[in-house]
Nucleic acid binder design. Sequence first.
DNA 1: ATTATCTATAGATCTATAGATAATGC
DNA 2: ATTATCTATAGATCTATAGATAATGC
Lengths: 195, 195
Amino acid sequence: MKVSKQKMAEHREQIITAAAKRFREKGFNGIGVADLMKEVGLTHGGFYGHFGSKEELIGMASQRALCESTKKWKKVIEEAPDRPLEVFSRYYLSRRHQMHPETGCLFASLGSELDRQPRSVKEAVMEEQLTIFDLLSRIVPGRTKAVKRKQAIVVLAGLIGGMILARSVPDDVLSEEILETVSSSIPNCVHADGT
Amino acid sequence: MKVSKQKMAEHREQIITAAAKRFREKGFNGIGVADLMKEVGLTHGGFYGHFGSKEELIGMASQRALCESTKKWKKVIEEAPDRPLEVFSRYYLSRRHQMHPETGCLFASLGSELDRQPRSVKEAVMEEQLTIFDLLSRIVPGRTKAVKRKQAIVVLAGLIGGMILARSVPDDVLSEEILETVSSSIPNCVHADGT
DNA sequence: ATTATCTATAGATCTATAGATAATGC
DNA sequence: ATTATCTATAGATCTATAGATAATGC
């Protein structure tokens, strides 16, 4: 029943990856350790050889989810050297993102649960959050670094709130209106203060 | 053990009120029927004389929470006839609101859980959401009703996202920076497009 | 007589641990 | 010999129901 050290490391990665997906899909309380382990092909007892607690996994999985998003966003931005902010906003506020929280932004799928997580989880999240601020700082207008950072925060807040509002509504027409309205507002909004 | 019809109606209200508070504080899964009933001074078995299921209570409590917020916001806005938008934004993005999710905006405390709730809950939420759009439409700049509505959506999205970002972080300095940055951006941001 | 609430419990979860098992890696 | 995983289970939840109890309201 024992597996090689390398296999074990793979298992650990698989558990984190599955958790990052299912937590975003079902919430931190929406899936249990047993089901996660079953998805990876292991039994639930084995979980505690990899992690000290579910809480520890929540921290790892949250960081993983945000890190994945940052990578994807970087790619999207690099592939649109002109108007990167507009392209990124549309990408974030797309119908596709709305319908697939399990592979999307952690703040949109679990943001309001983060405040109720232990400090260790919030610390892991903050680390990635700062990276995202830096990434967005490069594509928003603004004369100084400080202004760009502010713009990045404002943009991210608008995107997260827009997606949460759109997802919270059972009416497709209204949720599409929300996505379209917020994403249209961003380039304009941002130009006002900075450049 | 039976109580009068009026007392029973009061109990029902108390259950909804307690739920609206505790759900925002601990999440929809963070408090159970038994504890809610204990808070009201009843036993858990009695719950199902008032509601068919916990899900039904989640719908009622969500609507209640949003309705309370709308009332408070209306008051805040009416008490600041000049610069209502700025005053409201500062009120929403205050440290006080950050520290008290249990009496604050449902979208900030439970927004990302709403997508995982059954349709009946989302319908109850949407009803109040439209009222909020109307309320904010009155204080944002814009030449036409359509533009004002769009501005209202953009503002609400920014506020919700800003509060969620601020709460998700374990560092007081960073979270205050987020609140201040987003709330400073709103009057500017909004003037750009509309009036 | 009706019924709001209580007591007791069923049945399903869920996190975590203990000890057994069997494969790795010295 | 060490250890990653499995089996089995403890102990704590949680939603929901059934039947008893006692107060209301006809």
